[in-house]
């Protein structure tokens, strides 16, 4: 079973993402911000990371940058959830090492569709 690290500071988004992914049979580890996520990712290697961009303590782009430095996360798919539809954040994310992105708002089906693109 593939494990996914879901990072979002908003509890409702986290719940929605986590519920959807668990429903589709993934193992989900939740984290509330970049710092939390980084610790959890070090504790257990996950198959994929799904992170919000705007978060306190450490934002999603920095998180991706930090994760890519870790040997276990060199090739791990990392998607960012972003409402910024401008290319700006996407480009920043890409250069930090993000695999791709999912534009908010999205519904559970879109989420699962995108996840399937990178794992499974």
């Amino acid at each position: 079973m593939a494990s996914i690290l879901a990072v979002d500071d908003s509890a409702s988004m986290r719940q929605m993402v986590s519920f959807t992914l668990k429903g589709a049979g993934y193992e989900v580890i939740e984290a509330v911000d970049g710092v939390d996520a980084l610790n959890k990712a070090k504790g257990k290697t996950v198959n994929m990371v799904l992170t919000d961009v705007n978060m306190p303590n450490m934002d999603g782009i920095t998180l991706i940058q930090e994760l890519r430095k870790l040997p276990n996360y060199k090739f791990t798919p990392m998607l960012m959830l972003t409402t910024e539809s401008s290319g700006d954040k996407k480009a920043q994310g890409k250069s930090a090492g993000a695999t791709g992105w999912l534009v908010k708002p999205f519904n559970p089906d879109q989420l699962l569709g995108t996840i399937k693109k990178v794992i499974g």
Binding site: S10, S12, N54, T83
Partner: peptide
């Protein structure tokens, strides 16, 4: 930034949960 993030989260959530006006 803190204020922005709060607004940002509300917008994101509102969009996701279908409250278009709020978003």
């Amino acid at each position: 930034n803190t204020i922005f993030r709060a607004a940002h989260s509300i917008k994101g959530g509102a969009g996701t949960f279908g409250f278009t006006d709020v978003a």
